[in-house]
Design a protein around this nucleic acid. Structure first.
Lengths: 401, 401
DNA sequence: TCCGATAATTCAGCACTTGAATTAGTGGCG
DNA sequence: CGCCACTAATTCAAGTGCTGAATTATCGGA
C-alpha cells in the first residue's frame, strides 16, 4: 500500500544495500555465498561487489581453502572505510565512543554532567566536545566520520530537528539536536537510549536473527525497545515503547510521570529502593546490589524481590500477549542485576499470566551486551543509514568542491 | 536490512501495485493525477494503465470537464472484474457476504451455529455452504471470485494452514483452514476477526489515512488490531494484539483466559454484566443496553459504568504510551454502546494517565462502521493480495488447462 | 477554421539483472 | 611435468522497464 515510485535505479540501490548488509552482519563472506544468501545471480554479485571494492567500502580478506578447485575470495567491509561515533547521553554523564566499521572502539570519552537536573546547553556542549575529543584521540580525519548517533534518556520527538521530553528532570521539548548542531557539522542521528541499546542487542547481542523482539530495560526508570519485522518501531513521533509507563496496578502507586500504577513505580530501581525503606550506602547501583545481596539473609528484602519478579513477570506477559515476539530480552543495569537472580521466577509468573500460545513462541532471555552498549547501539544508526543508501555512491555530478 | 533479491521486473510489479492501490482507494482518478500521486512519469502511467485496461482490471469512467484543453479521462477499478467474499465467523453465528470490487454487498448469508461451544466441523461446513450460497445468490461465476477472507473469533496461528486457538470455547489449535478447504476450492485468507474489523476501518472508516492506529474492540471479550506503518501487525505467529489479556490490575479478578486482572475481566461485556449482579432479560446485547439505560436512574449501574470508563481509559493510555499511534478507535458492539455514553470520561482518564506528549498526538474516536464490518474487512484480504501482486498478470506460459 | 491549452502516447536512451559461455585458479594423478 | 577435473569469478547478449522529450489527441474560443 505504499506509493513511492520505483525506477530501475532503485533496483541497484536495493541490491547494493542487501549485499552490504550481508557483508556487514555476516562478517567475511565469499561472493558465491553472497549469491546464495541474497538470491542474486553470480554475475550481479560480481558486478556490484566490484563497484563496492572500487569505491573502497569493501575489501578482499583472504581466501578460503578448497580441495581441488579455485579457492573462494572472502570479502568484508573495510573497517577503515569510515568511522562512526556513538554517544550515550544519560542524566548524569555523557559517554562518547568512536568506532571503526568493525565496531572496534578506538576512543572513549566519559564526562559527568554535574549534580542536579541536567542543563540542556551543558549537555549539548559536552556532546560536541566529546565528539571532537574522540576524533582527536583516535587520530582520525574528521571527514572520515560518517555520522554521530546519540542515545538520549527521555523520549525523542523526531521532527525536522529532534526534541527531547524528559518530565522527570524538567526537560520539555528541549531542542537538543539544534543545540548540538551548533557545536559540530557531522551528520546527527538522535534516538532514545533504550532504543539504541535494543539496536545494539539486535545486531550484536541477544536479538541476533530475530524478526520480532522486545527489549525490556530496567534501570533507574523502565523503558523498552520494540523491534517489529527487524526494525525498531517508532510510532507517530518516535515515542513508542514507553513500557515503564503502562499501568499494571489500576489506581496503584503514583508514578513520577504523573500517572498511577505504572510498571516503573514497582520495578524501577529508584522505586525498589524507596520501597525497601532501610537506608543503604553508595550510589543507586551499589544500593540495589546490596539489596539483592541482602535477600539471602533478610526476609523483607527477599519478599520485595519476589514481589518484583511478580510485577516483572506480569509486565512481560503483557508484552507477550500484545506483541507476540519470538524473543524478550531483559536488560538495563537493574534488569541484569535482578534478572540474574530472578529470571526463573519471572518466567514462571509470565507463563501463568500470558496466553499459552504466544507464550510458547517467546524466549525470555537476559541481555548479552550489558548496559554500556547504548553508545555502541547509537553508533549503528549512521551505519544503518549507510547500508540503507547502499553505501554512498558518489553523487552523480562530482562538484569541484 | 532485508535480503530478498530485486530484479528489473519487480519494478513493474511495484509500480502496478502502487497504481492499483491509488485507483482502488482514491476512487476514479485521471492518469495525470495518478502520475502526481505516485511520482511516476506520465509515460509510465499511460503504459501501465493501458496494460491494466487490456487485462480488464481497470476501466475508463467518464471525463472531467476542462475549460479549454483536452479533458482528463477518469480511471477506476472495474467493480465487476472480480468478486470477493468475506466471512464473519463468530462463536454463535457465521455470516457470509459477497462483494464486488467497489465493496457493494451483492449477497448475504447468515446462519446460527447452534447453542453450546461451537463444533469446528459444523462451523467449517457452514462457511463452505455460506460461500456456495452467496455465489449462487449473487449469480456470479465461481471463477470470478478472487478469494474468501475469513475473520474468526480467537487467535489465528498462521502457518502453512491456519490454526485457531480459542480457549474460552475449547478450541485448541483447531485446523479450521484445512476443514474449510475440504468444502471449497477458492483461495482462503484467514485472520482474527478483530484484525479484519480493523482492516475495514482502516480502508473505509475511522482509520483512513492513518499510518499508525490501534483499533480497540470491546464485545463479549476484548481484542485489538494494531496497525503500524499502514499494515496490521501480526507478530511471530499472528497472535499479536491481545489487548484484552493484558493485566491492568495486578493480582486482580481472575480472567477466563486463566490470568488475573486482565482488561477483559473488567470491561468485557460478559464481565460487566456479571459484575452488575441484577438479572436482566434478553441476550447479551440487550442486557448491556439495559444496563447503560439504567445508569440514568440506578446509582449502582452509574457507578459500574464510571468504573468501566476508568478501566478503559487506563487501558487506552497504555496503548498510547506503548504504540504512540495517531489514532485510537474504540469499536465492537459493546465498545460502541459504552463509548457513545462514556467517551468524554474515557478521554479524561486517558489524558490523566498517559504521557503528555504521545497523548497529544493521539486522537481517540469511535468506530464508524459498526461491529458488522468484520465480514467486509475479511473481504479486503483477497483484495489486498491482488493489489500487492499488482493485479494478476496472466502467468508467463499460458497452459492449455 | 485555426489557435492556444491541456492530456495522453510514443520512442530513443539508459540502467539493470539474468543465464550461458568463458576465463581463472587449485589440487591430484599418471 | 603436464594434463584433467573441479570450483569460482567474469563477461556479455538478451530482455525488461523507466524517463524525458517529442508527438499526437482532444477540447474551447475567436
Amino acid at each position: 500500500m505504499n506509493s513511492r515510485r520505483t525506477t530501475v535505479r532503485d533496483v541497484r540501490r536495493t541490491n547494493r544495500s542487501a549485499l552490504l548488509s550481508r557483508l556487514f552482519l555476516d562478517g567475511p563472506v565469499s561472493r558465491l555465498e553472497l549469491s546464495r544468501l541474497t538470491g542474486l545471480s553470480a554475475g550481479t554479485v560480481s558486478n556490484v561487489t566490484g563497484e563496492l571494492i572500487d569505491e573502497g567500502v569493501v575489501v578482499e580478506a583472504g581466501l578460503v581453502e578448497s580441495d581441488g578447485g579455485r579457492p573462494r575470495v572472502l570479502l568484508r567491509v573495510d573497517p577503515a572505510y569510515g568511522y562512526v561515533i556513538g554517544v550515550d547521553v544519560g542524566p548524569t554523564r555523557v559517554r562518547t565512543e568512536l568506532f571503526d566499521l568493525s565496531m572496534r572502539a578506538l576512543a572513549t570519552v566519559d564526562r559527568p554532567v554535574g549534580a542536579g537536573d541536567p542543563d540542556p546547553g551543558t549537555v549539548a556542549a559536552l556532546v560536541a566536545a566529546g565528539v571532537r575529543e574522540a576524533v582527536a584521540g583516535a587520530d582520525v580525519a574528521a571527514e572520515r566520520v560518517l555520522g554521530v548517533g546519540i542515545g538520549v534518556f527521555g523520549t525523542v520527538e523526531r521532527g525536522r530537528l529532534a526534541l527531547v521530553h524528559a518530565p522527570t528532570v524538567g526537560w520539555d521539548a528541549v531542542p537538543l539536536e539544534a543545540l548540538i548542531r551548533a557545536g559540530t557539522d557531522l551528520p546527527l542521528f538522535i534516538d532514545n537510549g533504550a532504543k539504541t541499546l535494543g539496536q545494539a542487542e539486535m545486531w550484536f547481542g541477544a536479538g541476533r536473527g530475530a524478526r520480532h523482539a522486545v527489549f525490556a530495560l530496567v534501570g533507574s526508570g523502565v523503558g523498552a525497545a520494540i523491534v517489529t519485522d527487524g526494525t525498531t518501531y517508532q510510532g507517530t513521533s518516535s515515542s513508542a515503547g514507553e513500557w515503564g509507563h503502562t499501568a499494571i496496578v489500576y489506581g496503584g502507586r503514583p508514578c513520577r510521570c504523573g500517572g498511577r500504577g505504572c510498571l516503573e513505580a514497582y520495578v524501577g530501581a529508584q522505586s525498589l529502593l524507596d520501597r525497601y525503606g532501610a537506608e543503604l550506602p553508595g550510589d543507586e547501583e551499589a544500593r540495589l546490589a546490596a539489596l539483592i545481596d541482602a535477600a539471602d539473609r533478610s526476609a523483607a528484602a527477599d519478599r520485595l524481590l519476589d514481589e518484583t519478579a511478580g510485577y516483572l513477570g506480569v509486565g512481560i506477559a503483557n508484552l507477550v500477549n500484545l506483541f507476540n515476539p519470538e524473543r524478550i530480552v531483559l536488560g538495563g543495569w537493574a534488569g541484569l542485576a535482578l534478572g540474574t537472580r530472578l529470571l526463573p521466577r519471572i518466567r514462571e509468573v509470565a507463563a501463568a499470566q500470558a496466553l499459552a500460545h504466544p507464550f510458547s513462541e517467546a524466549a525470555i532471555e537476559l541481555s548479552r551486551l550489558g548496559p554500556d552498549a547504548v553508545a555502541m547501539g547509537a553508533a549503528t544508526l549512521p551505519i544503518a543509514e549507510l547500508v540503507a543508501r547502499g553505501g554512498s555512491r558518489p553523487p552523480v555530478q562530482a562538484s569541484s568542491r
